[in-house]
Design a protein around this nucleic acid. Structure first.
Length: 425
RNA sequence: GCGGGUGUAGCUCAUCUGGUUAGAGCGCCGGGUUGUGGUUCCGGAGGUAGUGGGUUCGAUCCCCAUCACUCGCCCCA
């Protein structure tokens, strides 16, 4: 029986060509987020179990996380999300942080479930959070960042859609306006969340079972596509006014693909107010690429005064699907700039030239195999390198070396300094 | 956790309703005389058909189990 070469179920190996793509994707994320004044943090991949049981649903923690008992008898979880961790960190230094605190991270997260398109067991997720802002400028900034990220990749606005809703609004409507029982509200929220996945008649039936005579009115409400279509009495709610404010502001700063979606719920209980998601509009990736919202209560779970927080997360798997579908991933060159073909027994003598190149910031790999030149060139080409340099007896004597561009097939004979110049542009 | 699909060479796939030594393209390796790849020509290696069991004179093909991949459901961080 031989060992399998496959990576663990639902997790990916990153061969150099894959890692290059990831590096590119993350570089864009970091660049944009840092432009907005966010600072990077990190934390351990392991957390104590009760960090999650304190605030998430039982099922998620018990059935969808990797847990174990460590040698000291502690219940440990491999982090399935970053939000509890960052809340923990902020709570821990609550007194000494400068607010608003703008933080980001790109952690790898694990969840135990069946892999499918856009959803693996291990993924990386950009987490962007701002702590200490209690007005909608924070929500606005989050959406602006999300939008900037996609634009930085070269995405055009009709390939994605930003959807907004408000937990407060939904709550006011269902418990206030329709006077529904708390338990009914909770079930209804879950049902609405699945609205677009259920067949229309099935949804209708379940809705009727849940809310009885209110069904026609709720159905009507769910069909609203623009926030101005809400009944007049609801428009007076502060939650509605805030949403209108955000939507208007987005228009003003040039983001015109944001819409109100009263059916948008998001799975987590910890959201307290405005929530948003960015959807990939291509039919092959019918998923939200990222989502977030306001969760003012989390930091307070650690026994300190609560801090208003808005944040969002964005997974690398759905993002990569989006980028691939829209052909937004460039060809990414390897880290190595040039391969040196050593001709004859000159490996040691070539070192001086190689060092000079490296000292000038050129990434150089040296073929020390001693095999024929055509093999050496072929190998460099296969690795995706753009240049090779030939170093043999005559070159070392004349201190001039052949520089060959493998993409064009042309070559020049140059001094080391000239090579450095040629490679630096 | 539940359901559908798939599993033949490194990769993409053939093997026509079960029938003798399972094929192709690409890739890989070697060569076309000694210091320049990608084209072309010649040659070559490589598969116990995911794994285990069953039916059959005979199984890549049918049945069961199992594993993996994949799509969807549940759930969604």
């Amino acid at each position: 029986m031989s060992l399998s070469t496959q990576p663990y179920k639902g997790a990916r190996d990153f061969y150099p060509e894959d890692k290059r793509i990831q590096k590119y994707m993350f570089a864009v994320l970091r660049r944009v987020v840092e432009k907005y004044g966010y600072q990077e943090y990190d934390a351990p991949i392991l957390e104590p179990l009760d960090l999650y049981t304190a605030k998430s649903g039982e099922e998620i923690v018990n059935e969808q996380t990797y847990q174990f008992e460590d040698r000291g008898g502690r219940q440990v979880v491999i982090r399935p999300e970053m939000t509890p961790t960052v809340s923990r960190m902020v709570a821990g230094k609550r007194q000494e942080l400068a607010y608003p605190a703008r933080w980001y991270s790109i952690p790898n997260l694990w969840r135990y479930e069946r892999p499918q398109r856009g959803r693996l067991r291990e993924h990386w997720q950009l987490n962007v959070d701002v702590f200490g802002i209690d007005n909608v400028s924070a929500e606005l900034e989050m959406i602006q960042i999300a939008d900037s990220i996609l634009k930085e990749y070269g995405a055009v606005t009709d390939t994605y859609q930003i959807r907004l809703n408000s937990r407060k609004l939904v709550d006011s409507v269902l418990s206030g306006y329709f006077k529904l029982d708390k338990r009914v509200v909770r079930d209804l929220v879950k049902l609405i969340d699945r609205m677009n996945k259920l067949p229309a008649d099935k949804f209708k039936q379940q809705l009727k079972d849940l809310v009885g005579t209110n069904a026609p009115q709720i159905t009507k409400l769910l069909q609203i596509s623009d926030i101005t279509e809400l009944p007049e009495e609801l428009k007076e709610l502060s939650s509605v006014k805030e949403l209108v404010n955000v939507l208007d502001s987005l228009q003003k700063i040039g983001i015109d693909n944001a819409v109100f979606d009263i059916s948008l719920m998001r799975g987590f209980d910890y959201y307290t107010d405005i929530v948003f998601e960015v959807f990939d509009t291509s039919p092959t990736n019918n998923r939200s690429m990222f989502g977030g919202g306001r969760f003012d209560g989390l930091v307070g779970l650690f026994g300190v005064e609560p801090i208003p927080t808005v944040g969002f997360g964005m997974g690398d798997v759905t993002l990569q699907n989006f980028l691939e579908t829209n052909k937004l991933l460039p060809d990414i060159a390897p880290e190595t700039d040039v391969a040196v073909c050593v001709i004859g027994d000159n490996y040691i003598r070539a070192q001086e030239v190689v060092s000079e190149l490296r000292d000038s910031g050129v990434n150089v790999s040296v073929d020390s195999t001693g095999r024929k030149i055509d093999k050496q060139i072929k190998n460099a080409d296969k690795q995706g390198l753009k240049y090779v340099i030939f170093i043999g007896d005559s070159e070392l004597e004349q201190k001039k070396y052949g520089l060959k561009d493998l993409t064009t097939g042309t070559s020049q004979v140059l001094s080391v300094q000239q090579i450095i110049k040629a490679l630096s542009k």
